[in-house]
Computed example of a mutant assay.
Amino acid sequence: MLSSEVQNSAAHSVLCWLATVDGNGQPNVSPKEIFAAFDSEHLVIANIASPTSVRNIEVNPLVCVSFIDVFVQKGFKVAGTARNVRRQDTEFSRWAAPLEAKAGPRFPIHSVLVVRATAIDPILAPSYRLYSTETTEQSQVASAMRAYGVQPARGDA
């Protein structure tokens, strides 16, 4: 389900947004900086400071994770079910491995939110649909760089 295109998009996204719902139906959306596509079925998200997300998942495992490359302005929405794998659980090391490589010693991972994907939809900036003949990834990157006031790193131009 998590194709190479989805996995590549996750790898090029700086943040993801995790949507959860509590027992009263109150939604919560929280940005997560340390996340990864684990395999063709799962995303993993580090619980560094996410007590509300963890609490909500324990009550209602249905989640939605969204991520985009802010320059290309494309990404994916992944719906699925999540579970919280705690540090003391025997499977923690396996799920946490790609996250610990990203977090390093500076950000302690308390647990791993393991999301099993059940549906995936692309996210595209409206320009791709409204102006499909003139919108390219290159034009979107150039536009985003102007908007954010940034330049490509040397060697990336």
Rank of each mutant, 00 (worst) to 15 (best):
A125N: 11
V112C: 02
A46M: 09
I48Y: 06
I34M: 05
A117T: 10
T20H: 00
A79K: 14
V114A: 00
Q140N: 14
W17K: 10
L18P: 00
I45A: 05
V141T: 12
S30V: 13
S50A: 14
A125D: 15
T81D: 03
A119V: 04
P122H: 12
V14P: 05
Y128N: 04
N47A: 13
A36S: 15
K77V: 11
I34P: 05
L130E: 15
V44T: 07
A36G: 03
V59F: 09
V29T: 15
T90M: 05
E91A: 12
A11N: 12
E58G: 14
Y131N: 15
I109W: 01
P51Y: 03
A97F: 10
A144H: 04
E134I: 14
N84P: 06
A142Q: 14
G75R: 08
G104I: 00
H42Q: 00
A46F: 04
F76C: 08
L43H: 06
K32L: 09
T90K: 06
G104M: 02
Q140I: 06
F38R: 03
Y128T: 04
I109E: 09
F67P: 00
T90N: 06
A101M: 10
S50C: 09
A125Y: 07
F76A: 11
P98Y: 04
H12F: 07
S66F: 05
F38D: 02
F107N: 10
Q140W: 06
R86L: 08
D22Y: 04
H110S: 15
E91W: 01
A119L: 09
D39A: 02
E33H: 11
A36V: 02
W95H: 01
V114K: 01
D69R: 07
S50F: 07
S66L: 12
W17M: 13
V54F: 08
R86T: 14
T133H: 14
N84K: 06
L15I: 14
S13G: 02
K32G: 09
P27I: 06
Q26V: 13
F107D: 13
K74V: 10
K77R: 14
R94E: 15
A11F: 06
V114N: 00
P27H: 03
T52R: 13
R94W: 07
E41H: 10
V70K: 11
A46S: 11
D89L: 03
T136H: 11
Q140L: 14
S132C: 08
V29E: 07
R83D: 09
T136L: 11
